[in-house]
Amino acid sequence: MQLQLNNFHIKLLAAIFMVIDHVGVVFFPNVLAFRVVGRLSFPLFAWLLTQGEQHTRNIERYLIRLLLLGIVSQPLYVVALQGEFLNILFTLMLGVAMLRLCRRYPEQRYWIWAASMMAAELLKFEYGAYGLAIVGLLSQFRSNYYWWGIWLGLHLFLAIASSNFGLFQLPAVVTPLLLLITNQQKGPTVRWFYTFYPTHLLLIWAIARSQ
């Protein structure tokens, strides 16, 4: 039987990889394996975001939910992970806005991508321009040589041009392999998915404080 993953499975994997990453940051900062596994998380969140933007019935409510959760999560992100940026939910919110603008103005999509990447850098969103580039690329995901060439080229370029971040993020290059075995089915509804982000940060912070 061929293994197939639905969107629910991808959500679980994204959440698990994220928790492993953050546990490594707080409790095992010298164990590189935690951070390597954690690099698989963001591209999965980005791909799920493209699915959510495509199928949402209310884009304004989607954006507001991400904004409010981002605001609630920011203090926890700072105290739990010593974060110096605006957390990933702000990055995802900007990604949704970028995708919807590209859908409405397809002839301007490259300018919209560029403006969104610049905004992510200027506003100091987590993952910055890279994060928006990943959202844009995964919204166009196709299993062909052209798409994989751009995906690999981006990560190799970063590894050379910005060795600290680029080499650290390089393991993410394999994440789309998981998308090759997705069946595009929604799977069970999970209402906890976005609230999981601030909740897991709160638990990590509480455990770290108790030690």
Rank of each mutant, 00 (worst) to 15 (best):
1 M>V: 15
2 Q>R: 11
5 L>H: 08
5 L>M: 09
6 N>S: 01
7 N>C: 08
8 F>N: 13
12 L>V: 08
13 L>P: 00
13 L>Y: 05
16 I>A: 09
16 I>Y: 02
17 F>H: 03
19 V>F: 06
19 V>K: 00
20 I>E: 05
21 D>R: 01
21 D>V: 00
26 V>N: 07
27 F>A: 02
27 F>M: 03
28 F>E: 05
28 F>A: 07
28 F>R: 04
29 P>A: 11
30 N>K: 08
31 V>T: 07
31 V>D: 06
32 L>D: 11
33 A>K: 01
33 A>E: 09
33 A>V: 10
38 G>P: 01
38 G>M: 08
40 L>R: 06
41 S>A: 13
42 F>C: 00
45 F>P: 03
45 F>N: 01
46 A>Q: 06
48 L>G: 06
50 T>F: 14
50 T>Q: 11
51 Q>W: 09
51 Q>D: 06
51 Q>A: 07
53 E>I: 12
54 Q>L: 15
54 Q>V: 12
54 Q>R: 15
55 H>K: 13
56 T>C: 10
60 E>V: 07
61 R>L: 15
62 Y>A: 01
63 L>S: 04
64 I>G: 03
68 L>R: 09
69 L>Y: 04
69 L>D: 01
70 G>V: 02
73 S>E: 05
74 Q>N: 04
76 L>H: 04
76 L>D: 01
81 L>Y: 12
82 Q>T: 04
82 Q>E: 13
83 G>D: 11
83 G>K: 07
83 G>E: 13
86 L>I: 05
86 L>H: 10
88 I>K: 01
89 L>Y: 05
89 L>A: 00
91 T>M: 01
92 L>Y: 07
94 L>Q: 01
94 L>N: 02
95 G>T: 08
95 G>D: 09
97 A>W: 10
97 A>G: 10
99 L>W: 03
99 L>P: 01
99 L>V: 05
100 R>C: 02
101 L>P: 00
101 L>R: 06
103 R>L: 07
104 R>K: 06
104 R>M: 03
105 Y>E: 10
105 Y>K: 11
107 E>G: 15
109 R>F: 12
109 R>G: 03
113 W>N: 04
113 W>Y: 11
117 M>P: 02
122 L>W: 13
122 L>I: 13
124 K>G: 14
125 F>N: 00
126 E>V: 13
126 E>P: 12
126 E>C: 13
128 G>A: 14
130 Y>Q: 10
131 G>A: 12
136 G>Y: 15
139 S>T: 09
141 F>G: 04
146 Y>Q: 12
153 G>N: 03
154 L>S: 01
154 L>W: 01
155 H>N: 13
155 H>A: 09
158 L>M: 15
160 I>N: 11
160 I>Q: 12
161 A>D: 08
171 P>R: 05
172 A>T: 03
173 V>M: 08
173 V>F: 03
175 T>A: 10
176 P>D: 10
180 L>S: 05
180 L>K: 10
185 Q>L: 10
185 Q>K: 10
185 Q>T: 01
187 G>P: 02
188 P>L: 05
189 T>P: 00
190 V>G: 07
191 R>T: 10
192 W>R: 05
198 P>L: 04
198 P>I: 05
199 T>P: 06
201 L>A: 01
202 L>W: 14
203 L>H: 04
206 A>H: 04
208 A>K: 13
209 R>A: 15
210 S>D: 12
